[in-house]
Amino acid sequence: MTRATTLLALGVLIAAILSVAAGKVWVPLDAWTAADPRSIIIVELRLPRTILALAVGAALGMSGAAMQGYLRNPLADPGLFGVSSGAAFGAVCSLYFGYAAQTWLLPGFALFGAAATMAALALIAGRSGSLILFTLAGMILTSITGSLTALALSLAPTPFAASEIMTWLMGALTDRSWNEVVVSVPLIVLGMAVLARTARSLDALTLGEQAARSMGVDPHRLQLAVIVGVALTVGASVAAAGVIGFVGLIVPHLVRPFAGHRPSATLLPAALGGALLLTVADSLVRLAPTVSELRLGIAMSMLGGPFFLYLLISMRRRLA
């Protein structure tokens, strides 16, 4: 483990502890025992929320790093595959039909949406292993699921359902419970394990597709692993927290100068960086003096948009 990775891991640990303590009610460490009445805030609200922030952040950061390595494009984002908008459409369907009252149905629908988009992507891209076909298919699926989501919103049966859909689409970790942890975290861990296994192939891809194949990389297996890994991590993240953009785009960039440019070297630091970013951001939106809590998804977009612009401007000289 490099020094940067160790520092990041330490940062994640500190952020996690502070995140459990911080909120509208500050709960100091000595009040975390069962004897203190405030411990119920810790156990029932803060702990699951912090665990989800850590898991979702790590999932988005790592899948972003894997996507950028696979597509060999620093502007790639897990959202490109259409998996997150597919998962969002699944969740929106459950809200549209009013199924979301049952705890398991919304994440279940979101995961089904992610899996269906993934299957469609695999079917369209076929066994070609072609990067262009794959990216275009992902973009088209994003656009289709996006318009279906808009359709569901415009045809929402009641104003309440419409507002619920709108709020959910903004992405947040407010009022999450252990149910979301139980549903999402194991899938995120599984997805991250699948992505971790692509590390060596992603490194070989640095030299182009033909060189990678000559080095023993099977492009079909790699593509399948990336699809499954991203679908599990991003699908489970959307199921837990709604759509939170830009983490997968920003974090790999932030860690790359310290971790080295080799794709495999960025996977773990990007996971840690994502966990750190989302945990800190979620603590800050909780602490922000707004009437209703600032949505995490909006906060990340407010951060991500300007960052994207900065990235483009800094790359402009090289691209022009």
Binding site: L207, G208, R262
Partner: peptide, 9 residues
């Protein structure tokens, strides 16, 4: 050693 001298990062 392929013809394209690609090094993507």
């Amino acid at each position: 050693l392929p013809q394209a001298a690609d090094v993507h990062w």
